Simulated scan of single mutants.
Amino acid sequence: MSQYPIILIPGGIERAKSALPPVPIFTEPLPQQPGTKPQKVNNTLIAVETAVAIPTIPVVSQLTSIPGWLLLLAAAGAIAGHAWHQITTYPQRKQKHDGEVADYPRKLERYKQEEQEHQEKVKAASSPERVTEFRYKLLLEVLSQTVPHDGNSGVAKEGWAEAQFCNYLNRHFSGKIHKKLTLKIPGFDYPYSPDFAYIDQGLNLRIDIEIDEPYVYHTGKPTHYVESSRDSKRNNFFINKGWVVIRFSEEQIVRCPDSCCKTVAQVIAQVTENNSILNQFASFSELQPIKQWTEAEAVQMAAKRVRNNYPCQSQNKGLYENSLIETQQQISLALKPNSRAQNRGSARARHRALNLSISPPTNNTTLSSLVSCPYCGVKLKTTKLELHKTDKCPKRPLL
């Protein structure tokens, strides 16, 4: 079962982190030992040649009609010539052999020396320092290919929890946290926009930091559940661009924002193999994992309004409770008639315009026949999408 935080690292970065420097190949051949001492005349070879010639001569004579005595004379001459050649070349052969015997110890010593030098090169190439240096250079090469964002005018609105978490991110990663960035999706009119983007310009390291809620607050629609194809497509989009993806549950950032930031730092240290960034997080506890919910569990969580009851750190509790009170007051104010002339029907109309229903979505329409709002993600009939985007969407861009 998947757990939060969900950490996804591109394959190129993973391969760079586990790569090893190339090891030099030893190509020097082992010296051959000198052969046996040459003989002035190789009597064994002469005997073999004679033994082969005697039975062969009659057969050849019968096939060629050449007299046998003539063939015997030719064979004897050839054997005698071979023997004479051995006698005349013996001094040169003996001199060559003596030289090989004298050179063999020197060649063997040179071979052993080169073998030792090769082993030292292999050892140096495999040293921790060399491996770290090699991986870092390879990592820089991989990160240089990361595709940057192409816009900074994202329209997605952030909730209170995201706004508060942004303060923690900026405190711990000053100057490297960005919001409202966008990356165009080929073939689509609307881009992806990370909740938060960590960007190290020097390394070109880019991290998409996402906050996952179990349901849409105003509609109760399940979201970010296990095996959500929408989240999988989004994750793959960023990973294929070279971005690291970190997904926290909303409960984690509400309860333990510092520990979530520590997790981000741990991922950075893991990617860069530089643990110095972790020094400032030594006093913070490790982030406890939370099981990712299924779609059915998200429906139950929406019915219980669990997003209203996250246990917070003591320093965040007051702010969180005030935020919930403020949200509820805004809902009540939006639903309250401004004058006696406003009737119950107009109040319901304002209620629908704000999409404040907390009931889980009905299943009268199949998901395959619906389309998603590009701003808030709510699924609607195609005929109602434009009206929703212009009048009802709680996250529609302000014109």
Results as ranks from 00 to 15, higher is better:
Glu158Asp: 13
Ser229Gln: 15
Ser359Lys: 14
Asn275Glu: 15
Phe237Leu: 10
Arg106Pro: 04
Arg93Tyr: 07
Glu158Phe: 09
Val267Asn: 01
Ser2Leu: 15
Asn240Pro: 04
Leu181Gln: 07
Thr89Met: 10
Asn42Thr: 07
Gly345Phe: 15
Ile6Asp: 07
His118Thr: 03
Glu210Ile: 04
Leu278His: 02
His85Asp: 13
Gly81Pro: 07
Arg247Val: 01
Ser228Gln: 08
Glu158Leu: 13
Glu129Cys: 06
Val306Tyr: 00
Lys94Gln: 12
Gln92Asp: 14
Ser174Leu: 15
Pro55His: 07
Glu286Tyr: 12
Arg130Ala: 14
Gln292Val: 08
Phe248Trp: 01
Ile13Cys: 01
Tyr310Val: 02
Asn274His: 09
Tyr4Asn: 04
Glu227Pro: 10
Cys256Tyr: 14
Tyr320Trp: 02
Lys379Met: 15
Pro10Cys: 02
Ile6Tyr: 05
Lys96Pro: 00
Ser232Gly: 13
Leu205His: 00
Arg247Cys: 02
Thr263Ser: 00
Ile358Val: 08
Gly175Asp: 04
Tyr4Lys: 02
Lys317Arg: 14
Ser323Leu: 01
Ala83His: 03
Gln113Ala: 13
Leu380Arg: 06
Gln145Ser: 09
Pro337Glu: 04
Trp160Ala: 05
Asn343Trp: 05
Tyr217Gly: 09
Ala161Met: 06
Thr64Pro: 01
Ser153Met: 12
Val59Glu: 09
Pro24Arg: 07
Tyr310Leu: 02
Cys373Gly: 00
Val147His: 06
Tyr192Asp: 02
Ile325Trp: 12
Gly68Cys: 13
Ser126Asn: 13
Asn236Asp: 15
Ser346Cys: 11
Pro191Gln: 04
Gly12Phe: 05
Leu30Gly: 07
Asn167Ile: 10
Tyr215Cys: 00
Ser229Thr: 15
Gly99Leu: 14
Gly11Ile: 15
Thr365Trp: 15
Arg15Ser: 11
Arg206Lys: 12
Ser193Thr: 11
Gly154Arg: 03
Leu333Arg: 13
Met1Arg: 11
Asn316Arg: 02
Ala302Gly: 07
Glu120Gly: 09
Gln113Lys: 15
Lys121His: 05
Asn152Gln: 14
Cys166Leu: 15
Val264Asp: 00
Phe165Val: 04
Asn170Ser: 09
Arg344Lys: 14
Leu356Ile: 11
Glu158Met: 15
Gln270Lys: 11
Thr272Ile: 01
Glu227Ser: 14
Phe281Ser: 03
Arg106Tyr: 14
Glu326Gly: 12
Ala74Arg: 06
Ala78Ser: 11
Pro214Ala: 00
His85Arg: 10
Val122Phe: 04
Pro22Val: 05
Val147Asp: 09
Cys373Ile: 03
Phe281Tyr: 02
Leu370His: 06
Ala51Arg: 09
Ala102Arg: 09
Ile253Asp: 00
Lys107Met: 10
Arg234Ile: 04
Ser283Asp: 08
Gln164Ile: 09
Ser314Thr: 12
Ser369Leu: 06
Gln252Phe: 01
Gln270Leu: 12
Pro38Tyr: 06
Glu321Phe: 12
His82Lys: 06
Arg234Asn: 04
Phe284Cys: 07
Pro31Asp: 01
Arg255Glu: 12
Arg130Tyr: 07
Leu367Ile: 10
Asn204Cys: 00
Gly151Ile: 02
Arg348Cys: 13
Arg130His: 11
Met1Tyr: 11
Glu386Tyr: 06
Ser357Met: 05
Glu158Ala: 14
Gln313Ala: 12
Ile185Asp: 04
Lys94Ser: 06
Glu321Arg: 11
Ile211Glu: 02
Asn204Gln: 07
Arg247Lys: 07
